[in-house]
Design a protein around this nucleic acid. Structure first.
Ligand SMILES: [Zn+2]
Ligand SMILES: [Zn+2]
Ligand SMILES: [Zn+2]
Ligand SMILES: [Zn+2]
Lengths: 138, 138
DNA sequence: CACTAAATGTAATGTTATTACATAATATAT
DNA sequence: ATATATTATGTAATAACATTACATTTAGTG
């Protein structure tokens, strides 16, 4: 949270109470959370909240890199343990939906180089990798 | 198409006229196509088609590995130029939504090894990488 | 032919995300 | 301080994507 405040300060971005609430809700989870699930939780704090309320706050947080969108799950997770503008991996278990985020320069470099050969410039944010976690095997 | 027929033959899977229609529609595009866009096209061939018609055919094709789902775009594309059960990359331009699929053993190995260190076993299907294509830069 | 399993038809509904416009709060300039 | 512009939030409706449930048809099997 402190880091988020500093980041917003630096960037001249307004971390309003509403945006802070959404961010804090995400921080409470150790897994990606759907926007409507988040909305349910937010409503207990802010009865007026509507879908667009959540999506707007998420957009703000996504732009800052404080939050990631996990396309494979249509869900959002607070970024942890990395610098903003990082390019790592997020491993997603097909079975239990658990995710792990990790930084990996080697993977990042390999991908970036392959993409560059085709004139393609990779963006930021982690790459999603689907598979099966240790727990969900035998 | 010929390859698809052989694959179905081998697997004892029924490539019905409907499923073939959906697959052929996908083959006509060189980009991922949304299910409802596909539905519109399918309707000109089969007026009775409904959303579930398309999704069922897509599930069939996905299981065989003939088609990929692109999570970043909520869309589907026919797999080209690779073996089934391959693990490559699909580069997706954030700006124009164009995609390129490529095989890359190095990237695949690097990812798989990193994931394995955490007891995570990567699945099949290409990894999605977002970025900017050559055309969309300057 | 009778039976079964697989595929498709049909309708409704669930889930995720966006658009449009009104109101309120905040910053900037005079 | 007041007027103005900008940014943020409220409110309602709708769009876009996907699934469920059950009826009917078609294709395979004995
Ligand atoms: Zn992160
Ligand atoms: Zn798992
Ligand atoms: Zn492929
Ligand atoms: Zn492009």
């Amino acid at each position: 949270m402190r880091q988020a405040e500093e980041l917003c300060e630096d960037q001249g971005a307004a971390l309003t109470p509403l945006r802070r609430d959404v961010y804090e809700l995400l921080l409470r989870h150790d897994r990606p959370v759907g926007a409507y699930e988040l909305l349910d939780e937010l409503k207990s704090l802010r009865p007026k909240a509507a879908p667009v309320t959540v999506y707007r706050a998420l957009d703000f947080l996504l732009d800052l890199g404080l939050v990631h969108r996990v396309n494979a799950l249509n869900a959002f997770s607070a970024c942890r343990g990395h610098e903003t503008d990082h390019r790592g991996l997020v491993l997603i278990c097909r079975s239990c939906k658990a995710t792990v985020e990790l930084e990996d320069r080697k993977v990042d470099n390999t991908i970036r180089r392959s993409a560059a050969e085709l004139g393609f410039e990779t963006g930021d944010g982690p790459v999603e990798v689907l598979g099966t976690c240790a727990g969900c095997r035998g």
